[in-house]
Amino acid sequence: MKHVAKVRIPSPMLSGIVYAAVWLALGALSLSLLLRFGNMEENQLGLYSLIVHGIAALCGGFVSGRRSGKRGWYYGGALGFAYGVLVLLVGFLATNAGLTPSTLTMMGIALGSGALGGIFGVNTSK
């Protein structure tokens, strides 16, 4: 077992979505643990979930910009938009949630932080 195959996703958008999903899962897990074992209340969950979405889109945009090597704001912003649409689609299919001001806020945060992550990511590429 000296040679272990390494999986590398060549597409900047797909790899960014995968990393954003991992960060979203980690953020949701930590929020649920704070809600259960900490002193956080349910009425604070909306703000913290927006922060988790922003961090997930930032990390996904970073990976997307780093993998693309050029136009980081473009790839990061596209990733943030795609991430927001996927979250809205899952929310609509799971709970029949529609477009509200908070969902539009989440889309704006995802778009902006994804573009910012892409700018940072393209500047760290080789």
Rank of each mutant, 00 (worst) to 15 (best):
M1L: 07
M1P: 13
V4T: 13
V4H: 12
A5F: 10
K6N: 10
K6Y: 12
V7K: 05
V7R: 01
V7Y: 10
R8H: 13
R8I: 13
I9N: 06
P12I: 09
L14N: 08
L14K: 05
S15L: 13
G16I: 00
G16C: 11
I17Y: 13
V18T: 14
Y19P: 03
A20V: 00
A21Q: 08
A21R: 09
A21I: 01
V22C: 04
V22Y: 08
W23A: 11
L24G: 15
L26Y: 08
G27Y: 01
G27P: 05
A28T: 12
A28Y: 03
A28R: 04
L29D: 06
L29S: 02
S30H: 07
S30C: 06
S32C: 10
L33G: 02
L33K: 05
L33P: 00
R36N: 10
F37S: 02
F37T: 04
N39M: 12
N39G: 11
M40F: 06
M40R: 11
E42I: 09
Q44N: 03
L45H: 08
Y48A: 01
Y48H: 04
Y48K: 06
L50V: 13
L50W: 11
I51N: 05
G54Q: 03
I55M: 07
A56K: 02
L58S: 00
C59N: 04
C59V: 14
C59T: 10
G61R: 04
F62K: 02
F62D: 02
V63R: 02
V63P: 00
S64D: 05
S64I: 12
S64R: 01
R66A: 11
R67C: 06
R67T: 09
R67Q: 04
G69E: 07
G69P: 01
G69T: 08
K70A: 12
K70Y: 11
K70C: 06
K70D: 08
R71P: 13
G72F: 08
G72S: 12
W73L: 07
W73P: 09
G76C: 07
G77S: 01
A78W: 03
A78I: 12
A78F: 11
L79H: 07
L79N: 02
L79E: 01
A82P: 14
G84D: 03
V85F: 15
V85Q: 04
V87S: 12
V87A: 14
L88F: 15
L89E: 12
L89T: 00
V90C: 11
V90T: 08
G91K: 05
F92S: 13
F92G: 08
F92H: 10
F92W: 14
L93H: 03
L93C: 06
L93I: 08
L93F: 14
T95N: 08
A97T: 14
G98Q: 04
T100S: 09
T100F: 09
T100I: 14
P101I: 00
S102C: 09
L104P: 10
L104M: 00
T105K: 04
M107T: 03
I109Y: 07
I109P: 12
L111W: 06
L111D: 07
G112V: 00
G114I: 14
A115T: 01
A115R: 01
A115K: 00
G117R: 05
G118K: 05
G118A: 02
I119E: 13
G121F: 11
V122Q: 03
V122E: 08
T124G: 07
T124K: 03
T124N: 10
S125A: 15
K126P: 15
